[in-house]
Simulated assay, not measured.
Amino acid sequence: MPSPAVDDYLKTIYHHTEWQDDRITPSQLAAELGLAPSSVTEMVQKLAAQGLVTHRPYGPVALSADGERRAAAIIRRHRLIETWLVREFDYGWDEVHDEAEVLEHSISDRLLERIDERLGRPTHDPHGDAIPDAEGRVHREPFVLLAAAREGHAGRVLRVSDRDPALLRALVGVGVDVGRTVRVHDAGTVVVVDDSAPVALPEGAAQAVWLTA
């Protein structure tokens, strides 16, 4: 049965391996959700009993095939709603996450399909995150985290983390947005955007921006 709490767990596990390969640990899951480790351990055991995750004591947590499908479905809802709010209601990309967190649990499948159709079946949300299709499939280009990109690397901005709204606003202020071409200088602290003059990035940007590899 639908459960916002279960969906939040599955989304967090799904998110963790979207842009890197290490599986999430229970302690990381607790930190991400802002919950006590004991509560997370209990829920992970319930999710495993439902066949939504795989987990061994003291080991990392991974989605099962059923868990992956359910996580992709709620991620699809969240990211379509974010895209809808930006395109149709002129929300900023720093404003949509919390709204989508509420709406993803309340709109019907019929309305979601109408939104998807109206938007032209988008494949990525305003932050560059892939929107799973109705079957849960996604397409991602090869990528590199800005902090790991070598000096001189040039790539298109694929994704910007939506975790920190203030950072999103600061990045817009220096011209860094999804789709921009960036050339890396000074270990990712200074970049050239679209062949303009070098700009210093706000603190935390190097860990929040992904480029084409």
Rank of each mutant, 00 (worst) to 15 (best):
A5M: 10
V6F: 09
K11I: 08
K11S: 12
I13L: 01
Y14C: 03
H15Q: 13
H16V: 00
T17G: 03
Q20W: 04
Q20N: 12
R23Y: 03
I24F: 04
T25K: 06
Q28I: 02
Q28Y: 01
Q28F: 01
L29C: 10
L29F: 06
A30I: 04
A30F: 07
A30T: 05
L33A: 11
V40R: 08
V40S: 06
Q45P: 01
K46R: 13
G51D: 01
L52T: 01
L52K: 02
T54P: 01
T54W: 02
H55L: 02
P57G: 09
Y58C: 00
S64K: 00
G67T: 05
G67N: 02
R69P: 02
A73K: 10
I75T: 14
I75M: 12
R77A: 06
E82L: 11
W84C: 14
V86K: 04
R87E: 08
R87S: 07
E88H: 12
W93S: 12
A100R: 05
E104F: 09
S108C: 11
E113D: 14
R118W: 00
L119I: 03
D125W: 03
D125I: 08
H127T: 15
H127Y: 11
G128Q: 09
A134L: 05
G136R: 10
V138S: 07
V138F: 02
H139N: 10
P142A: 15
V144A: 06
G152L: 03
G152F: 03
A154T: 15
L158G: 08
L158M: 14
L158A: 12
V160P: 02
S161V: 10
S161H: 10
G173N: 08
G175L: 09
V178K: 04
H185E: 05
H185T: 04
A187W: 06
G188P: 06
T189D: 05
V192A: 05
V192H: 03
P198L: 01
V199R: 10
A205Q: 07
A206L: 06
A208H: 12
V209A: 09
W210C: 13
A213N: 05
